[in-house]
Amino acid sequence: MYLTRFRINTARVTARRLLASPQNLHAAVMSGFADAPDPERDGARVLWRLDTSSDRAQTHLYIVSPAPPDLTHLVEQAGWPTTAPQGWKTYDYAPLLTRLAKGDRWRFRLTANPVHTARRNDDEPTKLTAHVGRHHQKKWLLDRQQAAGFQIVEKPLAQRALPDGDEHELLLHNRRQLSFSRGRPAKTVSLVTLTYDGLLEVTDPQAFRHTLTNGLGRAKAYGCGLITLAPA
């Protein structure tokens, strides 16, 4: 497995077009592989996520993949082809995955599509609906943590700012409502994404490795599901 970071030149018109459409950016990411990765064959899939710095000065594309990508086309479209022709860095992800152990604590970031099935009355079929309230958005992640091989660390009582709803080392931010076209004839896709930052503890290393290499939740083709780690 490999982890790749690519800095996007947001001043370029073609870069802004990619950033405006998760469908186009997904196609650009997948074009970085001569042979399309197969999750059944490789045991993992291609995951990607966009991160923007707090001052909006830098936007990075992160990719986790079974094979290293060639992002030459992205450098030409959305990078600095003259001054930084090798505009990305790829790291071997296997050493980190291998050394994961129960009890390890990591800072993490996840951009996800927190949804649930709902219907207005018994006569209607259920449909996917985005969680709106912070309580339900937080619960969406907490409900999946055990099967995903980790748990969100709880704060000491003295560090909780609120009597209820502030139990975990977890920050929810950057909620986005996305709308873009897909396929021919064009079909409009609407998507709500949310970024989670927090502190987790590994409870099942094997399950957690699967989560890191296969993603969490829905809309993985559109920049959701990738968990990245940093030392706690």
Results as ranks from 00 to 15, higher is better:
residue 5 R to D: 01
residue 5 R to Q: 10
residue 9 N to H: 07
residue 22 P to Y: 05
residue 22 P to M: 09
residue 27 A to W: 08
residue 28 A to S: 10
residue 29 V to I: 08
residue 30 M to H: 07
residue 30 M to C: 12
residue 31 S to W: 06
residue 31 S to E: 09
residue 32 G to N: 03
residue 33 F to G: 00
residue 48 W to L: 02
residue 49 R to V: 03
residue 52 T to Y: 04
residue 54 S to Q: 10
residue 65 S to P: 01
residue 66 P to L: 09
residue 67 A to P: 03
residue 69 P to T: 04
residue 69 P to C: 07
residue 74 L to T: 01
residue 78 A to Q: 08
residue 82 T to Q: 14
residue 83 T to G: 05
residue 84 A to V: 15
residue 85 P to G: 09
residue 85 P to C: 09
residue 88 W to V: 01
residue 90 T to E: 03
residue 94 A to T: 15
residue 96 L to P: 04
residue 99 R to N: 06
residue 101 A to Y: 08
residue 102 K to V: 09
residue 103 G to Q: 02
residue 106 W to D: 00
residue 112 A to R: 00
residue 115 V to T: 10
residue 115 V to L: 05
residue 116 H to C: 12
residue 116 H to L: 04
residue 121 N to W: 15
residue 127 K to C: 14
residue 130 A to V: 02
residue 131 H to Y: 13
residue 133 G to Q: 12
residue 138 K to W: 06
residue 138 K to F: 06
residue 145 Q to H: 14
residue 148 A to V: 01
residue 150 F to M: 06
residue 150 F to K: 00
residue 155 K to N: 07
residue 156 P to Q: 08
residue 159 Q to C: 12
residue 163 P to M: 15
residue 165 G to P: 04
residue 168 H to K: 13
residue 176 R to Q: 12
residue 181 S to Q: 11
residue 182 R to P: 00
residue 182 R to I: 13
residue 185 P to L: 02
residue 189 V to F: 09
residue 190 S to R: 15
residue 191 L to Q: 14
residue 194 L to K: 02
residue 195 T to C: 07
residue 196 Y to R: 01
residue 205 P to R: 03
residue 206 Q to I: 10
residue 210 H to F: 02
residue 211 T to V: 08
residue 212 L to T: 03
residue 215 G to E: 04
residue 216 L to P: 00
residue 217 G to D: 10
residue 218 R to E: 13
residue 219 A to I: 03
residue 220 K to E: 05
residue 220 K to R: 10
residue 220 K to Q: 12
residue 221 A to M: 05
residue 222 Y to V: 01
residue 222 Y to M: 08
residue 227 I to L: 03
residue 227 I to K: 00
residue 232 A to D: 09
residue 232 A to T: 14
